[in-house]
Design a protein around this nucleic acid. Structure first.
Lengths: 156, 156
DNA sequence: CAGAACACCAACACATATGTCAGGGTTCAA
DNA sequence: TTGAACCCTGACATATGTGTTGGTGTTCTG
């Protein structure tokens, strides 16, 4: 299919698809006239790229885990045990990154949901979000990870 | 506590803390001399802000769900919940993708290892292959110009 | 007091993701 | 043939997150 349809099916813009290509994250076949021809596999790949980006990864980072983008995980890894192992390392690191991000979000969600249902019963007037009354409220929700050991910042 | 300590405890820079403040995501008390004084609550809030950002939200979006930042998640946080849920869709999609891929690779690895050790009695010499060589990805933001070459003059 | 160690702020530099527009082809139907 | 509807590339524009720098006030300590 060509650009417009591909973009529509993914719910993103053609511009973004072109961007991924230019960033070296995917290669798209062209027809004689130079038009891009997207395959289903291309769509799948593009969607993964998009998911990565929307989740906070940059194309630069994504490029380092290119093998995670193709449909067959074992494919690009035929180079041998060493390469496979390396891929494994990358994928595991990615996974743990995603895990922490997901965990944080899930926690946050749970806390918010609880607070919300609580709020419905209490019906207390809400005070501005920026009102931090400086009171040292005991840890309440989202507390694992006491000292910003943030898998993403200081891990260098 | 003041800026330096706060930043260290969160594992981020003072610059980022200032940025969150300027973006209207938090306000920090000041002492007479104008120095910022961070409370524990401030730290918690800043950490959440950081988590959101690292997960792909912009300060603009985060401002929209300011209620999700305070310790008491009561207020009108519905929008936040929805956005977080949306984010979860992407993350979970990636996770499941990665899971299957990882499985395939592990299998393949096992197979190759078996075949290998079957072929030669000594299955020791390549352990180094499993080392994490860490292909580091440079952080965002300004980078020192490698050679004082102004590669793009008229752009501002 | 001098100097180190911090703090503050503004402004500029960069990378990245996207939007948008310009100048130009290609296809196809009326 | 003409026009609509697509496609392409490239360049410029904007929003964001951070790093970096420079100028300057404040605090603490020898």
């Amino acid at each position: 299919m060509q650009a417009k349809e591909a973009a529509q099916r993914l719910g993103i813009t053609q511009r973004m698809l072109r961007h991924y290509e230019k960033a070296g994250l995917m290669k798209v076949r062209r027809s004689e006239n130079g038009y891009r021809i997207y395959s289903e596999a291309d769509l799948r790949r593009a969607e993964r790229i998009y998911d990565f980006i929307v989740t906070g990864f940059s194309t630069r980072e994504i490029r380092t885990m290119a093998a995670c983008l193709s449909d067959e995980g074992a494919g690009p890894c035929e180079g041998g045990i060493e390469k496979l192992s390396q891929k494994l390392v990358h994928i595991d690191r990615l996974r743990s990154d995603l895990d922490s991000r997901r965990e944080a979000i899930v926690d946050r969600l749970a806390t918010l949901r609880a607070a919300l249902s609580n709020h419905l019963e209490e019906s207390e007037p809400y005070h501005a979000a920026l009102d931090i009354s400086a009171s040292e409220v005991p840890p309440r929700g989202r507390r694992p990870n006491p000292a910003g050991v943030n898998s993403n910042a200081a891990r260098r």
